[in-house]
Simulated scan of single mutants.
Amino acid sequence: MSNAMPPLLEARNISKAFGRFVAVAGVDLVIRKGERRALIGPNGAGKSTLLSILGGQQAGGAGGQVRFDGDDVSGLQPEDLARRGVGRTFQISRTFRKMTVAENMLASLLPRAGLIYSLSTQRLNILREQADAILTEVGLARRSGTIVDEISHGDRKRLEFGMVLATRPRLLLLDEPAAGMGLQERQELMAMMLDQVTRNGITLIFVEHDIDIVFRIADVITVMARGRVFAEGNPQEIASNKDVQDIYLGSGH
């Protein structure tokens, strides 16, 4: 990723404490447009907390400043950030489990379309066509009429990703998107996600413990430990850093 590309997101001196426990301590992060950035490190390093601050889920009580596309978005709520183009998925899938796959996708399209209170049949049909198209892109067309409770964990992850795609994000935050999956299912999911990210020109920040996935996808890797940035560089630089190997493969992971 060329440094000539302008920053899409700039985080400066980001800090967050829970009582006496400091989860994030003065982190700086600059993400350029089109970049694929991985956050790695031992459990408890602060990766997911940092992602939550960037996505607005932990904005309250967080110190520092977050700028998105040049605007100060520090402290904004997730829905406000979503309107600006920031999307996020979670370790635990967040879907409407008693609704069908298609109904979930339709629900994700409604707010952006501004049609919650005025759904004509024609407009609804257009949204249904859009929902069907996204379900095809994420490999769920065959499951559109199935209740979410009845689909697999991997398909729920695909659905959640599709629902985030429906908001047309410019920046996508993924928190361990392939957690809890077998090897083949994990590889298929990540390949689909990467294809969609590339095809739609989405900038990506993701937390992932699978180092093979990290080194295959990331342009830049940020290594965190004890709430701070421990090292940063391209995959080759991180792979050859002995201190990173010690801290990431040590007893804390």
Score class of each variant (00 low, 15 high):
Ala45Leu: 09
Ser240Asn: 12
Gln65His: 08
Arg36Cys: 06
Leu29Ile: 07
Ile211Thr: 09
Arg112Lys: 14
Gly70Ala: 09
Gly233Gln: 04
Pro7Met: 00
Arg158Asp: 00
Ala231Ser: 13
Met99Cys: 10
Phe230His: 14
Asp210Arg: 01
Thr49Val: 12
Gly154Ser: 12
Glu103Gly: 06
Ser118His: 14
Asp212Leu: 05
Arg37Val: 15
Arg88Pro: 05
Glu160Gly: 10
Gln122Val: 08
Ala11Tyr: 03
Glu185Trp: 03
Ala59Pro: 08
Ser144Val: 07
Asp246Pro: 00
Arg94Lys: 15
Gly63Leu: 07
Pro7Ala: 03
Ile202Tyr: 07
Ser120Leu: 04
Leu174Asp: 11
Gly44Pro: 05
Ile40Arg: 05
Phe21Met: 13
Lys242Val: 13
Thr49Ala: 05
Met163Leu: 04
Glu208Val: 09
Asp212Gly: 02
Pro235Lys: 06
Arg36Asn: 07
Glu237Trp: 04
Val214Ser: 06
Ser120Val: 04
Arg94Ala: 10
Ala4Tyr: 09
Pro42Glu: 03
Pro169Thr: 06
Asp149Leu: 12
Gly26Ile: 05
Ala113Gly: 10
Ile14Met: 13
Ile217Ala: 03
Ile147Pro: 05
Gly26Met: 10
Gly85Lys: 09
Ser240Phe: 06
Leu51Gly: 00
His253Glu: 13
Ile31Phe: 04
Arg12Ser: 13
Glu150Ile: 00
Leu127Thr: 01
Ala141Ser: 13
Arg158Met: 00
Ser118Gly: 12
Gly114Lys: 11
Arg97Lys: 13
Ala45Tyr: 01
Leu249Lys: 01
Met1Thr: 09
Arg186Asp: 02
Gly61Thr: 06
Arg156Thr: 02
Val138Met: 01
Phe215Lys: 06
Glu129Cys: 00
Leu172Val: 07
Gly250Asn: 10
Gln57Tyr: 14
Leu135Lys: 00
Val138Phe: 02
Val27Met: 11
Ile238Pro: 01
Glu10Gln: 15
Ile134Thr: 04
Glu150Ala: 09
Gly233Leu: 09
Gln58His: 15
Gln65Arg: 15
Gly60Lys: 12
Ala38Cys: 11
Phe90Gln: 11
His153Glu: 10
Ala178Trp: 09
Gln77His: 13
Pro111Arg: 10
Glu176Met: 10
Arg170Lys: 15
Gly64Ser: 09
Asp69Met: 07
Val24Glu: 00
Asp243Arg: 14
Ala218Ile: 00
Lys242His: 09
Glu150Cys: 08
Gln184His: 12
Asn3Tyr: 10
Asp132Val: 04
Pro169Val: 03
Gln196Glu: 15
Ile213Thr: 14
Pro235Ala: 06
Leu81Val: 08
Asp71Val: 12
Gly75Leu: 05
Ile134Asp: 04
Ala191Lys: 14
Arg37Leu: 14
Met181Arg: 07
Asn125Gly: 13
Pro78Met: 01
Gly114Ser: 08
Met105Ser: 01
Ala141Gly: 13
Gln187Ser: 15
Glu176Asn: 10
Leu115Arg: 15
Asp72Met: 10
Glu160Asn: 08
Val22Asn: 05
Phe21Ala: 13
Arg142Met: 05
Leu8Thr: 04
Gly227Lys: 03
Glu237Ile: 08
Asp212Cys: 00
Leu249Trp: 11
Ile134Val: 14
Gly139Lys: 02
Ala25Asp: 15
Thr89Leu: 07
